[in-house]
Structure formats: structure tokens, C-alpha cells
């Protein structure tokens, strides 16, 4: 199970990073979102993978899921949403002001390759 979980995290991270390396805004935003899923899963798993653990304190129960990573990830999810929202709106703004959705500075002479 651990190997499977790690594999999923790895694939999500790889897919997210590949998208984040693209030259247009929307794939980059999607890639960052995907990357944040991977990061959240990773952070969550630092508390171990608990099956059928109690989420709430009850008398007589002593098998609990680790609450600390959960609390951290919970806020990370919400902040991740704020980040996605900000970056996608920024992308819209850039398209509105510059007329392009390329992520590279149009004045920079270097990325000739991206423009084909």
C-alpha cells in the first residue's frame, strides 16, 4: 500500500511539474494545482496511512489517525485554492493587458524556441 501511495504521489508530481514547465498560462495554473494535490497527499502521508482510525476522540478508543498533518493539510488546501485563484486571475489580467497568454516576458530575446 505504501508503494502504491508513493507511486500516485510521484505521478501527480511529475504530471504537475511537466505542465508547470509549459509556455502558456492556463496549463501552468493547472500544473500548479496538480502539484499542490501531490504536495498535500505527501504532507498528509507524513502522519502515516491509517485505515479505520478514529477521527474524533471517544472513550475506549485508542487507534487514531494522526491529526497534526490533517490540520496542516486542511489549511494548505484552502490556501492552495487562493493561490490557484490568484494565478489564474493574474493570467487573465496578463492576457487582457498584453494580449498574450505566454508566461515568458515577451521582451526577453531568449526563448525563441517557445515561439516556434
Amino acid at each position: 500500500m505504501e508503494a502504491l501511495f508513493a507511486t500516485v504521489t510521484g505521478f501527480l508530481a511529475a504530471s504537475g511539474l511537466y505542465l508547470a514547465l509549459r509556455g502558456r498560462t492556463f496549463p501552468v495554473v493547472v500544473g500548479l494545482t496538480l502539484l499542490s494535490y501531490a504536495v498535500n497527499l505527501f504532507l498528509f502521508s507524513t502522519g502515516g496511512l491509517t485505515t479505520n482510525g478514529a477521527a474524533v476522540i471517544e472513550d475506549g478508543v485508542d487507534y487514531y489517525a494522526d491529526p497534526l498533518p490533517q490540520a496542516l493539510v486542511l489549511t494548505a488546501i484552502v490556501i492552495g485554492f487562493a493561490m490557484t485563484a490568484f494565478s489564474v486571475i493574474l493570467a487573465m489580467r496578463v492576457r487582457g493587458d498584453q494580449g498574450s497568454d505566454q508566461v515568458n516576458d515577451q521582451r526577453a530575446e531568449e526563448p525563441k524556441e517557445e515561439r516556434s
Partner: peptide, 20 residues
């Protein structure tokens, strides 16, 4: 980019497995 992504995914997965 695919190589980079694959390398990155591999590192993340390895770290995660090692941690778990």
C-alpha cells in the same frame, strides 16, 4: 521537460516511500 518531470516524480515518490 519529460525527463525533468520524471526525475522529479521519481524523487518525490522515493522520498514518500522512504518516509512511509
Amino acid at each position: 521537460d519529460m525527463l525533468l518531470a520524471a526525475g522529479f516524480g521519481g524523487v518525490v515518490a522515493s522520498l514518500n516511500y522512504a518516509l512511509l
